[in-house]
Design a protein around this nucleic acid. Structure first.
Lengths: 305, 305
DNA sequence: ACAATTTAGTTGACTCAGTCAAACAATTAT
DNA sequence: ATAATTGTTTGACTGAGTCAACTAAATTGT
């Protein structure tokens, strides 16, 4: 049995969040919709077609009550129904253009509300909150699907994120000292300072608004692309993301006309080494160094394209 | 502005938790209490004495509605009231023995409910959930007491944090481009790379484990200390933290034997400028530049120690 | 094949949680 | 003293949500 402090804490949180959601949901009164209306419209709007049963089940609503809501939405022109070809008892519900507009308006208000909340917080806090929400959600609702992984070019702050997360990780895991963070910061700084959109590129892997990985390609001159700052967050390891990032970047480098990719790493980073090996890189140089405190084997790997 | 994937995630969680709490709260129907009744009884039961106003405020209830609920509780013998000696309009409410029994019964049911949920989970999971709940709570609940502000030397990842937060802020607020982040990263990189414990220093202001401000002193040679990367997070502005940081660092520079402090900033950063002026800095040079996109007035300020 | 049962959705009839405005009584401010 | 404010109660509603009964189509059992 879980211990009682945990249960108390959970009850406490539930009480708190009941209050909190109560406040949030009152704000829907600025619109002609009740909370339930909003939930229904939202659910219809975010799917293509739904049947009434499915709605009632997912939102835990009384079918009679739902039926009335839908009827009202229909007379207001927010939704339209077509008979289900597979089951003539059932109607498939979808939003009209007008309903879609309302749906988006609701979404906007909801966003604004949360934006306002978040703006009162310190910069890193929304991310902590969302991460915590995801934890709860994934454990409490095993059916929840992970938001999709997005790989996108870098934005403001991403380089800082790379510096921070790499520094924390290698310091904790391998005891590297601040010079490592310094090196990463300098690499990041030069990358941004001399950024050449034609030949340089940075990709950030993100899931649900949270950065989980990075990789850079910079122009080393002489047709050589340098692969740098490959990093995968703890939470995303073992999923093949590193391999994907590297493979895709090889293709990218080829397309950009580079004739060789080169990278520098350290032998103790086994996972990374495995990825490079598999991608066809070969080790061309190795040197012992103490750049970051502990003694390490720095390695240079290259791949001819 | 926080980015939209985060907001979506938060909305998604709120929707999920609205459902979740809805299910949880329906279960109260096994008792003669509605959710609101239960909340009220719980609140009274867990305090010694409360006034009706306080209850209405904390639970966000309509006073008229609350008044009726209390009346019912009173006729049912769950609560008793004594006139407030300090204010004869007001009544102090407390639970009777019978009310206390009901209160505990409610608590028991609530515990059982959560125990059941938790029992379905894997061993470590309840702990993770509760930790996540605490994170959310502490960040979202303005009533929760603020953990104390700590000013400490930098640790692994702090420079990355500085880069990230400054880049995000100046990009959002002033439309500066990636070269700004590049510059900050390089400054940070050089600071760490050439770190001299005797003459360089970085302070991070942190609250509850979350960074909210920074300032650096680096050795500019010739007895000149350079003040760099002053930054205060949105959540901590207007509290005089900037002034504290600057004033303290002036004292530090003096103690280290520097004879002058110099810094570079841009004229549009009014808050920072006010701090420097007040601290006795004087403007010694100014130049128009476009280092970060928009046209700006770079300013060099110095203070003789 | 066809009766029995289940499922999708609708309608009538109701109730009770929650709201709004006004009133009263005590306190605080001017 | 008088006015404005605050704590609480009451009257008069309303409308969100419920429950039971019903139609019609689909599924199941024999």
């Amino acid at each position: 049995m879980p211990d009682s402090a945990l249960i108390d804490a959970a009850r406490d949180f539930n009480r708190f969040y009941t209050n909190f959601l109560g406040v949030l949901n009152k704000a829907y009164l600025d619109t002609p919709f009740t909370l339930t209306d909003a939930r229904v419209l939202f659910e219809i709007g975010s799917r293509e077609q739904v049947s009434a049963v499915a709605l009632a089940r997912d939102l835990q609503l009384d079918p009679a009550y739902l039926s009335r809501i839908l009827k009202r939405f229909k007379t207001e022109g927010l939704i339209e129904t077509t008979p289900d070809p597979d089951d003539r008892r059932s109607q498939l519900i979808s939003v009209t253009d007008q309903g879609h507009q309302q749906f988006q308006e609701l979404g906007k208000r909801s966003n604004d509300q949360i934006t306002q909340r978040f703006n009162k917080l310190a910069a890193g806090e929304p991310r902590s909150i969302v991460a915590a929400m995801k934890t709860i959600r994934s454990l409490l609702d095993p059916g929840a699907t992970l938001p999709p992984l997005v790989i996108r070019p870098h934005r403001a702050g991403d380089m800082g994120w790379i510096v921070e997360s790499q520094a924390k990780f290698y310091t904790e895991e391998y005891g590297w000292d601040m010079r490592f963070e310094g090196l990463v910061a300098e690499v990041a700084g030069r990358f941004l300072g001399n950024f050449d959109p034609a030949m340089d590129y940075c990709w950030i892997a993100e899931r649900g608004g949270i950065n989980i990985g990075s990789i850079l390609i910079t122009n080393g001159g002489d047709g050589i692309a340098k692969l740098r700052l490959l990093y995968i967050d703890r939470s995303a390891r073992g999923l093949g993301l590193g391999k994907t990032l590297v493979d895709e970047r090889i293709r990218f480098a080829k397309a950009k006309g580079y004739r060789q990719i080169s990278l520098w790493t350290n032998d103790i980073l086994h996972a990374a080494r495995a990825i490079y090996l598999k991608a066809g890189f070969r080790l061309v140089a190795e040197e012992r160094h103490r750049m970051f405190g502990p003694e390490l084997n720095g390695q240079t790997w290259v791949l001819d394209l």
